[in-house]
């Protein structure tokens, strides 16, 4: 993608594809593949928060995992700080772990139930800085930074609420002082009342530590609140990229329009033009030809069935992949 004015981006993803083979056995060569991510390119600048939104099954999580090589990309390039990481071996990758971390969606599954908070938070430091003596102090300051206290050190994850667990997960992710964080739907599993606290915590940490962040979510209002730029995904492909405000005020892709009109507005008197999508997201096993969105698109034409629309810049830092409008 074309550079949008920022300095050299910290993370650069080019033509990333991830295909999952389905089934295995004798005829695995011909087994159908799920195209979870198809030709995705984007970048995250230093200190920037990029939101990644899309329905479930749109490949958001796979992109987040591929960037960290928690799943191996099928093809494409991921460069971190100018360094290609898709070809790193195990030990080189381990060095990179200090720089790139992840916060998980499910705070109940992402903490080992048999480890105390102290063990969880020192895990990374014990791996990367085994000689370090001040682990206790580091952990206490981490806990205090995320709004917990040293009284929680000896406790186990089950003794905490979802929000508290997510704070522990965040503390774990920043314990190595990374430069880049993937936040994989960090608030989707939380009560609305604690969502804001966790989002604010992430935002504060981002400012303090100059973090770059890929913020994955399906909740558009959360993404708008936190992100500098937003990427809209559909069926593994990028539909539209824009600065947060631009995207919300002036969506250019029919899919984005539909998504935005589905966001509830807390004012019953507001009359809106609802763009309703019909049907379900098609199976990534057998995606539509041409533009993947055409089967549900109100503006679809013959052209859309034949040609994949390229992602083009239609306004400064505003990209869309659509033949029309």
């Amino acid at each position: 993608m074309i550079e949008a004015g920022a300095a050299t981006p910290l993370l650069e993803v080019n033509s990333l594809c991830k295909h999952f083979p389905t089934g295995k056995g004798l005829f695995s060569r011909n087994a159908p593949v799920v195209k979870a991510v198809e030709d995705v390119s984007f970048h995250v600048g230093a200190g920037e928060i990029v939101g990644l939104v899309g329905e479930s099954g749109s490949g958001k999580t796979t992109i987040g995992r591929s960037v960290l090589r928690l799943v191996e990309p099928t093809s494409g390039s991921v460069r971190f700080d100018g360094r290609e990481i898709t070809t790193l071996n195990e030990s080189e990758l381990r060095g990179l772990r200090k720089e790139m971390q992840i916060v998980f969606q499910d705070p109940f599954a992402s903490l080992n139930p048999r480890m105390t908070v102290e063990q969880i938070l020192t895990q990374a430091l014990r791996i990367h800085e085994p000689k370090r003596k001040d682990l206790r102090e580091v952990v206490v300051s981490l806990l205090e930074r995320v709004g917990l206290s040293s009284a929680h050190l000896a406790r186990y994850p089950h003794e905490f609420s979802g929000g508290q667990r997510q704070r522990i997960g965040i503390a774990r992710a920043v314990s190595l002082r990374p430069r880049f964080l993937v936040a994989d739907e960090p608030v989707s599993a939380l009560d609305v009342s604690v969502q804001a606290q966790v989002v604010n915590l992430l935002q504060d940490l981002q400012r303090e530590m100059q973090l770059s962040m890929l913020f994955i979510a399906h909740d558009l209002s959360v993404v708008e609140y936190i992100s500098d730029r937003v990427i809209v995904l559909y069926l593994g492909r990028i539909m539209e990229v824009a600065r947060g405000r631009d995207l919300y005020v002036n969506p250019r892709h029919p899919y984005t329009e539909a998504l935005l009109s589905a966001v509830p507005v807390p004012d019953p008197t507001v009359k809106r033009n609802l763009v309703l999508l019909e049907g379900d997201i098609p199976s990534p096993l057998n995606p539509p030809s041409g533009c993947v969105f055409r089967t549900r698109c109100p503006a679809a034409t013959e052209l859309c069935a034949h040609e994949v629309p390229p992602l083009v810049e239609i306004a400064p830092a505003h990209f869309k992949a659509c033949h029309h409008r």
Binding site: R65, L68, L70, L93, R94, G95, R97, K98, Q101, I102, F104, Q105, D106, A109, S110, L111, N112, P113, Q123, A124, I127, H128, G169, R172, L176
Partner: peptide, 13 residues
Amino acid sequence: KEYIEAARALGQK
């Protein structure tokens, strides 16, 4: 489980 993925992300062998 995600905690295993988390351990991998932290660089655990």
